[in-house]
Nucleic acid binder design. Sequence first.
DNA 1: ACTTTTTTGTACCATTTCGCATTTAATTCC
DNA 2: GGAATTAAATGCGAAATGGTACAAAAAAGT
Lengths: 219, 219
Amino acid sequence: MVQKSRKPPSAAKIEAPVAPKRRGRPRAYEPDVALGKALDLFRRDGFAATSLDDLSAATGMNRPSLYGAFGDKRELYIKSYQRYRDDARAAMVDIFRADAPLRERLERIYRIALDIYLSGESGPRGCFTVMTAASEAVSDPGIRSMVVEGLTELDKAFGICFRDAKERGELPEGADPAALAHLASATIHTIAIRARARVPRRELEAIVKGAVDVLCAAK
Amino acid sequence: MVQKSRKPPSAAKIEAPVAPKRRGRPRAYEPDVALGKALDLFRRDGFAATSLDDLSAATGMNRPSLYGAFGDKRELYIKSYQRYRDDARAAMVDIFRADAPLRERLERIYRIALDIYLSGESGPRGCFTVMTAASEAVSDPGIRSMVVEGLTELDKAFGICFRDAKERGELPEGADPAALAHLASATIHTIAIRARARVPRRELEAIVKGAVDVLCAAK
DNA sequence: ACTTTTTTGTACCATTTCGCATTTAATTCC
DNA sequence: GGAATTAAATGCGAAATGGTACAAAAAAGT
C-alpha cells in the first residue's frame, strides 16, 4: 500500500472538512479511491489491454460516470500516472532529503521501490513509468514528456544524493555523481523490469545489494 | 538493420538450396521477411495495440495465411520475440567472446545495443525483452519464462565478461563480477527505456560512458 | 486432362470496444 | 411541495477485433 491519505495537509483554509454542500445528486464514488483502482488496473495490464468495461467494473462507476469524472481513457491513464508519480514521490522524498549516510539512503530508497514494484494482488506490477515508457511513450508525445519528466526527476534526486555524499567525503575525489546517479536509476529500472518477470524479491534484493556496494565504493 | 540473412550456415546438407519442389500453390510471401515485419510492428506498439489487420497489412499476408503460417496472434508474438532474440544474440555474441580488453568489449556491446534500440522508421523501438517484461510477462507464464531467459542470458554474458576481465587482472581483487554484470545489464535496461522516451542518442551515449567508466574502475 | 495438394482471397461471425444520448434518481434552493 | 441541479443507470450504435469457413487459384503428380 503506497497510497497516502488524500487529505491536503495545507495549513491554510481550515474550512470544507467534509460537507461543501454541493447542489445536485451526490456522487456514489470517491474520486480518489476510484482513481486508485484505475491505476491498479493500468499498472497490471497497461493502457491498450485495459478496457473501459474493466475500469468500470473495478471502480464501480459506470462508463458515463467515468467519462464525466476523468475524461476519456487516455485522460484517465494520464491522471492515473500522475497519481502514481505523486504517491511514489511522497514515499521517497523524505528519504532522499534525509541527513543520513549514502549507503543507508540508497538502501531505504530501494526497499521502498521494491515495495512499490512487488505489491499487487494479482502479481507484481513493476514501475509505471517504465511500463509507460515501454508502451505509449513512443507514439504519444504528451505521455512521453511525462515519462521523460519522471525519469529525469529520479536522476536528479539520486544526483543530489551522490553530490552531497561526495561533499561529505563519503565518496572519493574522482567520483562522478551524475554517472553514479544514472547507475542508481538504472538499478531502479532493472529491478522494476525483473519484478514484472516475477523474479523473487530475494534475488532483487541481492541485485540491489551488489549495486549499492559498487555505488558506495566507486572510483 | 540487425536481421542477418536467414540462410542456415550449417555445413552439412548442401541440398535444398532453392527448389524443394513443393506440391501445391506456392507461397506468395517469404516467411522470414513477413516475420520481420511482424516483429517491427510488435516492437513499436506492443502486443495488445497491434491488431491482426495491422499485421496483415504490414506483412502483405491476409489473415488466414498469417494464421496458417504462424498460428494465432500470441504464437506470432512469441515467434517474433524468438526472432528478436536470435538477431540480438547474433549481433552480440562475437563481441562477448572477443579476446579484447573489458572496456572495449563493453563499449562495443553498448554501441550495438543502441543501434538496435534506436532503429526504426517510426521512432526508436527500445528492447523487445524489456517491452515484453513490461506488458505480457506478468499475466502470461509462457511469455514470462522467455523473458526471464532473455534477462538471464544477458546477465550471464556480462558475467563471463567481468569474470575473465578479473582473471586477467583488469579488475581489482575485490571486484564482484556478478554484481558488475547486473549493473551492466541494468545499463542496457535503462538505455532501452530511455530510448523509447526518445532521449537522444548523445545522452544515451553519455550515460553509457559514465557507466563504463564506473564498471571498469570498480572497487 | 484430371486429380491432389497447398495456398490465397473473400466474406462472414460473434464479441468487444469506445463513446454518447437519453432517461431516471437524488439532492439543494426557493 | 416544486423547480433546478447534479449524477447514476440504461442502453444504443458504429467501428474494430480475433478468428474461421469456404470457394477460387496455382502448382505438382498421374
